[in-house]
């Protein structure tokens, strides 16, 4: 159930360090396309340290929920990371149907983010919560459909079965892989509040989704929340890279390629953010429905192949 030491160490390092570099690289890419020099790639790390040292202001209208929420959010995302396949397609803890635990841990963190935002009683945060909850409700079933289809296809219900599709089922597997990459990439853009769904750079509260929910958090709490959202991005990127990278590759080569592809993904996100405007809020649903549609297509293809219906 628990994998060997090397994978544990690599996975933990990946979860802890990668978020900073991914965020830094996205910012650097955006600066490059904007004709600016941009901030150092280590800046997200410096910011994190700075926030840890800062004091906090906590609104008097909040209750204990607001105070524990950042810790709950952070620890449930880290906990989810233990079940996610990272290096060599392996998770630190492997379970049958681990993706169910994984999804619900992410869901749990989101639930706390939402009630903590509502706890502040601010109309902005209520608005952000309602948007976030809306999009999550659409993402979650699609994610389940996709992973259940994979379990059926590979006959293996552990989370790391995703890295087997490409190698085990030939051309059909390739088709499924492409669709899954697209679907999970959309999930990443929505979950990690990137353009075209959300704009992480904006100061305009009325247009925000994720950022507006954490307006009241400061100092240590804010550091934990931003870190958690970076870790979530690293986890989802790892899942995407695992879909592409054949797990049969050996040792160091895999590790190097894995890191390179994860960083490449960050650059791609940066390019999208530089080239595209945001989608109108009412049209975000249509964007999320793309993921749902892909999920349904994957499910039907798998059903036809496995059961011949």
């Amino acid at each position: 159930m628990i994998n060997n030491i090397l994978i544990i160490v690599l996975n933990i390092l990946f979860l802890l360090i990668m978020p900073f570099f991914m965020v830094g690289l996205i910012k650097k890419t955006k600066a490059f396309f904007g004709g600016r020099k941009g901030i150092s790639i280590f800046q997200p790390f410096y910011d994190f340290v700075k926030l840890l040292k800062k004091g906090q202001v906590i609104s008097s209208s909040t209750s204990w929920i607001f105070k524990i929420a950042p810790l709950v959010i952070f620890s449930s995302v880290i906990f989810a990371g233990l079940f996610a396949p990272i290096f060599y397609g392996k998770a630190i803890i492997e379970l049958e149907c681990a993706f169910v635990v994984f999804s619900y841990l992410l869901g749990f963190s989101k639930f706390f983010a939402i009630i903590s935002a509502l706890d502040t009683g601010s109309s902005f945060e209520g608005m952000g919560s309602s948007r976030e909850a809306c999009f999550t409700t659409l993402i979650e079933p699609a994610f389940f459909i996709i992973l259940a289809s994979i379990a059926v296809l590979t006959g293996n219900s552990t989370f790391n079965s995703i890295s087997m599709i490409l190698t085990s089922t030939g051309a059909f597997g390739l088709l499924i892989t492409i669709m899954m990459v697209a679907a999970i990439f959309i999930m990443l853009l929505v979950e990690c509040s990137r353009v075209p769904v959300d704009d992480p750079e904006t100061h305009l509260e009325l247009t925000m989704i994720h950022e507006v929910m954490i307006l009241d958090n400061s100092g240590f709490d804010l550091a934990l929340i931003t870190y958690a959202s970076g870790i979530k991005m690293a986890i989802l990127s790892a899942i995407i890279v695992n879909l592409i990278l054949p797990s049969a590759l050996n040792g160091a080569l895999f590790a190097v390629l894995f890191i390179a592809l994860t960083l490449l993904l960050a650059i791609i996100i940066g390019i999208i953010e530089s080239m595209m405007a945001r989608i109108r809020m009412s049209h975000v649903f249509e964007f999320v429905f793309i993921m749902s549609s892909i999920a349904l297509v994957i499910a039907s293809l798998v059903a036809v192949r496995m059961f011949g219906v």
Binding site: K30, F33, G34, G35, R36, V195, P196, D199, E201, T202, L204, T207, E273, S274, M275, M276, A277, R278
Partner: peptide, 16 residues
Amino acid sequence: ILGDIAYLMGKEVYAV
């Protein structure tokens, strides 16, 4: 205007 809709390139070029 372009900055508000997160169209980064336009925002930067016009500012310059």
